[in-house]
Design a protein around this nucleic acid. Structure first.
Lengths: 147, 147
DNA sequence: CCGTATCCATTCCGATACTG
DNA sequence: CAGTATCGGAATGGATACGG
């Protein structure tokens, strides 16, 4: 039988996995966040076959994570651009990247520890204070969203 | 042919997906973070068939995300407990949960906006100040790790 | 209760050839 | 360049029966 759909799950994590919980989607979003927009760019970066890439791109467009627009360089082709919804996955990718760097052996190095999601670039210095006024110290970790 | 392995990828996101980028692993980790430890608990919660669950649990143990220990209640069976490495995925799950709540229609409500990873519980009030001294305001979002 | 073993359907993925 | 069409192998997932 086929895989159960999680789209109606009460848990938002399950619903997220239902949308981007496959092998390629998040990697496509990662590349899109890096600025890739063209079919051939994704194809070369991922080393995925054309038919699979077509499937995944179509699915991401359908989900409202990517959208198609005319090419910006005047060529006859279209581009895949992230929507606001798609850019929201940046946080998920940052978390996965950090975990991977800390927990899965890598052939190379590099670290990003703080990221300003509004401007999509690293933050060098940041002061974080807890509710009781205490200043957070080295080693402490948080995910923060300002409301 | 078979799926390419991403285990040697330079990108830590790809390496992470190589470890937990399948349909069930993150949901098992989610349940483990909620306190589940027994085979039957996962089985009931996920509605997954026994053979698949066996496979996934074995894989997670092999990856060092779960570990087996004797049952704490005196029964003859074993428990699956998260390792430190496994608990590190908490951040990934929080990010996915937030994205799902904001971007995928749900049958129910509920929100968690700030989480203290050290104590694994929500934070009610938090003040965040950028490098230039500016106080972050409503709507701004960051992922922060104190170094 | 905690799996293992088997079977089957579906899906995924890669390779290749082809088209406008 | 950007796909579409088709193929086959492999992995995935579900159901069920069985065993310690």
């Amino acid at each position: 039988m086929r895989r159960k759909s999680l789209s109606g799950a009460a848990c938002p994590i399950a619903r997220t996995l239902d949308v981007i919980g496959d092998w390629w989607s998040l990697l496509i979003v990662r590349d899109a966040l890096r600025g890739m927009r063209r079919f051939s760019e994704f194809e070369k970066s991922l080393g995925v076959s054309k038919n699979i890439l077509t499937q995944r791109l179509r699915s991401l467009v359908k989900q409202g994570i990517l959208e198609l627009s005319p090419a910006s360089d005047g060529s006859a082709y279209r581009e895949y651009r992230l929507t606001t919804k798609g850019r929201g996955l940046f946080k998920v990718l940052v978390a996965m990247g950090q975990w991977g760097q800390e927990n899965v052996a890598s052939p190379a190095g590099g670290r990003v520890t703080m990221v300003d999601l509004e401007h999509h670039k690293p933050v060098r210095k940041l002061e974080v204070r807890a509710a009781d006024g205490r200043l957070l110290g080295p080693g402490e970790t948080m995910i923060v969203r300002i409301d």
